[in-house]
Write a protein that binds this DNA or RNA. Structure first.
Lengths: 128, 128
DNA sequence: GCTCTTCGATTACAGTTGTAATAGATTACG
DNA sequence: CGTAATCTATTACAACTGTAATCGAAGAGC
């Protein structure tokens, strides 16, 4: 049933780079982009790439000696499935209470609040 | 900085029982309430209780031979911190986009939508 | 008092994760 | 060619997780 591979936090950062790139990247490109922020050794990034390939979240094509890595799953799908398991584990699967929690507790700018209200209204009009 | 202990998924289920109970419970009570749903061996539940004590998410007082367990951290605090790390890892810490994601994608009843709009309006009026 | 039952405490063990180091293959340089 | 540099693949290893089993002490029954 778990249609999408389970992607850990560290792995997620690697995926983000590839999703953002929009095109296949060599390991070193990924190292540069993700390593900067996270202070990871290149080895570490390579390991993560490997695991992600093993998990089938990434695939690659060889370009000479190097590999060009690219995602096999969309960011949207992955966001959906992580979100789902988060809501399941903390809010018992109920999205309503979860949203309520954030709407009440999270820092939101007035603009964001307006925007959210609009989204809700659009949804209301379109009927679920 | 991590003010609250990291509580894993399985551990969370145990915490839920104790938060819901509102009063200290014996291990066997927890076993009954959580084991039913999860199909866990009593051993497993005891282990989780132990780990949670070690993590200081629970404490206990001895009542004769048995222990009465109770949470040392509130559910609200824990929800906040799990939520925070979820938002951080998937939405880069930005709550707005996260809410947008759910408002657009999640199944919401018309009632929930109305309710959320009201919450947002209350917030608007009270000014952040 | 001795034995069986009940608890909590300690130990187990495999899978995942974070974080790399080492080994092997291939290429580029001299 | 031989050697160094560069990739990927394999291996490492401790902490955390899920899921228990075993050990030891304390009380309950006989």
């Amino acid at each position: 049933m778990a249609r999408h591979p389970t992607i850990s936090d560290a792995e997620w950062d690697v995926m983000e780079v590839l999703w953002a790139a929009g095109a296949p990247l060599m390991a070193n490109d990924v190292v540069d982009r993700v390593g900067k922020a996270n202070q990871w050794s290149p080895r570490t990034v390579k390991s993560l790439l490997n695991r992600l390939v093993k998990k089938s979240a990434l695939d690659f094509e060889a370009e000479g000696k190097r590999y060009l890595y690219f995602p096999t799953v969309s960011r949207a799908e992955c966001v959906r499935s992580r979100s789902k398991s988060f809501v399941a584990s903390v809010f018992g699967g109920a999205v309503g209470p979860m949203l309520a929690h954030f709407v009440n507790e999270a820092p939101l700018t007035p603009d964001e609040i307006r925007e959210l209200k609009e989204m809700l209204e659009r949804r209301e009009r379109k009927g679920r």
